[in-house]
Amino acid sequence: MTSPADTFNLTFDSTDAGVPTVVGVLGGGRMGAGIAHSFLAAGAHVTVVDINDAAVEAARERITNDIEGSIKRGAEGTVEQWLDRLTLSTDTAAFADHPVVVEAVPEIIDLKADSFRKIAAAAPGAVIATNTSSLSVSDLALSVDNPVIGLHYFNPVPASKLVEVVVADSTPEALVDLAREWVAGLGKTPIVVKDAPGFASSRLGVAIALEAIRMVEEGVASPEDIDNAMVLGYKFPVGPLKLTDIVGLDVRLGIAEYLESTLGERFAPPQLMRDMVARGELGRKSGRGFYDYS
């Protein structure tokens, strides 16, 4: 069966690294800024759109900090040369004629669907890639006629080596192959997964984190000792509780609630997790979670 996405032109001008020469990113938060930086590092021109001037300036600061870090680690060019390839705006009309736009707004399905529609209105010929970590890419794709694929990056994007390529029901096969090439061009490793709740990484990662939180709740061991068990015993680069602090307890709570609604009771969030989010103990971004960052 032919879907509207099959009629799109999936031929792109590419940088030397093999990524599209022009890329849009909707959302300039921690993830969106990291995604923008990754494409800048691969030689692309990047347009970042966020909700207001304050958000745009915060995105500029995040991206600039990431650029400075890359240059300190030996990347070529100056900060100014990198920033010359960056455009920031509060208007999705800035995505006009962009062949690829990555959506990186908060993990709220109605917000993401509305973002898809805004991208499609501004760039009706664009591939839309969503950075969702758990929501159905196939359901989001129903919002637009554009070809849609999931590109699930990991936090922090500059340091992470993995991107999940999530295949929606309507995703053209040629786009899956292209997305794998783009991820490799960003210096990361793609894994291809079908559109299932939580994909591979969030489903496994959240399952481990929820059990670790239950262990804290039951007084089995301290957060430090639980994390050390996984770091020292299983060679995890960071423990599940510290990683939850990095991701954000509110973000992981939302994912857990979605997985509970789709996969069942085994993903029910512990009461401790709900209580911490209610108190504003969201992890590193709030200064306190399972660890104190103040």
Score class of each variant (00 low, 15 high):
Asp169Thr: 14
Glu107Gln: 07
Glu173Thr: 13
Asp114Gln: 15
Asp139Ser: 04
Pro190Gln: 12
Asp145Lys: 08
Ala141Pro: 08
Ala168Phe: 14
Ala120Lys: 00
Asp177Leu: 10
Ala184Gly: 11
Ala179Tyr: 10
Ala126Ser: 15
Ile119Cys: 10
Asp195Thr: 14
Ala179Gly: 08
Leu162Pro: 13
Tyr153Met: 11
Asp177Ser: 13
Pro106Val: 09
Glu103Gln: 10
Asp195Cys: 10
Pro99Trp: 08
Asn155Ala: 12
Asp169Leu: 15
Leu142Asp: 05
Val192Thr: 15
Val105Glu: 07
Lys194Arg: 13
Val127Gly: 07
Arg117Phe: 07
Ala121Pro: 01
Lys112Met: 01
Ser134Thr: 13
Leu88Trp: 00
Glu107Tyr: 03
Ile128Asn: 01
Asp139Leu: 05
Ile108Asn: 08
Pro156Val: 12
Pro99Glu: 03
Lys161Pro: 11
Ala123Cys: 05
Ser134Met: 08
Leu178Gln: 06
Ser143Leu: 07
Leu111Ser: 13
Ala104Ile: 06
Pro106Gly: 04
Asn155Leu: 14
Val137Leu: 14
Leu140Met: 15
Glu173Phe: 05
His98Leu: 07
Thr171Val: 12
Asn155Met: 07
Ala120Pro: 01
Ile128Glu: 02
Ser170Met: 02
Ala104Val: 06
Val163Gln: 04
Ser133Gln: 03
Phe95Pro: 14
Ile108Leu: 03
Arg117Ile: 09
Leu178Arg: 06
Ala168Glu: 05
Lys112Ser: 05
Ser138His: 09
Phe95Thr: 12
Pro156Trp: 09
Asn155Gln: 11
Asp169His: 15
Leu111Tyr: 11
Lys118Ser: 15
Ile108Cys: 04
Lys118Pro: 03
Leu178Asn: 07
Val148Pro: 08
Ser133Val: 03
Glu164Asn: 11
Asn131Ser: 14
Ala104Phe: 10
Glu107Asn: 02
Asp110Ala: 15
Ala174Trp: 00
Pro99Ser: 10
Thr171Arg: 08
Leu151Gly: 07
Lys112Pro: 08
Ala141Ser: 12
His152Glu: 09
Arg117Val: 13
Trp182Asp: 05
Glu103Trp: 04
Phe116Gln: 02
Val127Asn: 05
Pro99Asn: 07
Val165Met: 01
Thr90Tyr: 08
Glu173Met: 10
Ala129Leu: 03
Thr87Trp: 02
Ile128Gln: 07
Ser138Thr: 15
Gly125Val: 00
Ala196Asp: 08
Leu175Tyr: 01
Gly125Ser: 04
Thr132Phe: 09
Lys188Asp: 04
